[in-house]
Simulated scan of single mutants.
Amino acid sequence: MTPADLSRTVAHAVRGAVGDGELPAGVELPQRVVVDRTRPGGVGEYATAVAFPLAKSAGRPPGDVARVLARRLAGAPGIDRVEVTGSGFLNFVMGRPSAEALVRDVRERGLRYGVSPEVAPGVVGARTRAEVVRDAVLRLGGDLGLNPDLDPDTRGPRIAPVPKKEGDVFADYGADAARWAMLAVPPHETPSFSGRLLVQDESNEFFRVRYARARARALLRNAAHLGFRPEAGDEPGDTEHTPAADALLRALADHPLALEAAAHHRAPERLARQLVRLADALLDFQYDVLPKGDEKPSAAHRARLALAEAAGTVLAGGLSQLGIAAPERL
């Protein structure tokens, strides 16, 4: 179950509780259930505060509403356990994401995996920091008109500009590296430019993200030389429960939530952080993809290759959302 699926599942549970009389008929149903990653020290992987607005219209304590929903959600596919914490937060311990379902979803959506269908592609030609940030927010589906922090015509510019001493960063670092530096920190923070942006090693996050995308394409080329292609699978042994595989699956499953949060908060840096996380997971996982020594390609190798291919596609799509190219070779 992806975070987007979880959001829909919680919304369905709310409607079911009202329909079955467990919550009053007059409860104001939420248009959208916000699901976030559990904060450090919390329970499980995801949490939602949906019980609080429901409790207000139901005239009941949030904890009571949360327990009603927890009972309905406990048996949902993909959810291992639901706990109520604090005064009414719902916390979810999730089952391992299905590699087959994730790969299928990425293949169907391609570069638009996790992107809301109504979000239109961005525009090109942005040069100032304000233009770059606004362009990225629009690509993510954020609403600039509701956020004065991103509107230089309201209460003064709140997007920190590139310091004049940096000169023409597009000419000095290239358009892609310049955009990454502008978008990798919150809009109100001053972006940092240095020779580190151009360093071609894994100490450079910008390089790591694009390198991981290129590694995914290289794995596909190498597998073709060995005579096999990616094939999604979820049978035992296809994608073993290794730490590297689990980390990559979690990062892929979280990607739609990261995109939604980046759009909702008008925060492109959230997507940049998600791409770094996904890239690091793929770079760790890559060593398990191809046969070693005298091994023959098996169903497990084909499934791992499909997972790596999906991760590379999502990285390319995420870079595209930031207006940055994703080369197949570096």
Rank of each mutant, 00 (worst) to 15 (best):
E231T: 03
A267K: 03
V10N: 08
V115M: 08
K292H: 12
A311D: 01
R39I: 00
H241T: 13
H225S: 14
L219C: 06
D284L: 14
H301M: 00
P152I: 13
A253E: 03
L257Q: 14
R134P: 10
V199K: 11
R196E: 11
A247H: 04
R71M: 10
V84Q: 05
L271H: 07
S203I: 10
L69H: 14
D238E: 15
L73V: 14
G16P: 01
D64F: 05
A184L: 05
A171N: 06
G42D: 07
P148M: 11
P77Q: 07
R329V: 07
A76M: 11
Q274W: 09
Q31L: 04
L322C: 02
R304K: 13
I79H: 03
A299H: 04
E240L: 09
D135R: 14
D105Y: 00
A300P: 08
A310K: 10
P256V: 07
D294W: 14
E118N: 11
V27N: 04
V276W: 03
D143R: 14
V119K: 12
A303E: 07
A74G: 07
L146K: 15
A247R: 13
A101V: 14
D284H: 09
G318F: 05
R210A: 06
G122V: 06
G227L: 07
A310Q: 07
R15C: 09
A178V: 01
P40R: 02
A247C: 04
A216M: 02
V132D: 06
V123N: 12
L252N: 01
R270E: 12
L257R: 15
D176H: 05
E45T: 08
L138P: 01
L29T: 12
R32F: 09
A130P: 02
G145P: 06
G41I: 01
R229A: 15
D105Q: 14
L275F: 10
R155V: 13
V133E: 11
A11M: 13
K56R: 15
L307Q: 04
T9Y: 04
D149C: 06
P230W: 08
E189Q: 15
R273Q: 10
E205F: 13
D143T: 13
A74M: 05
R329F: 13
L226S: 07
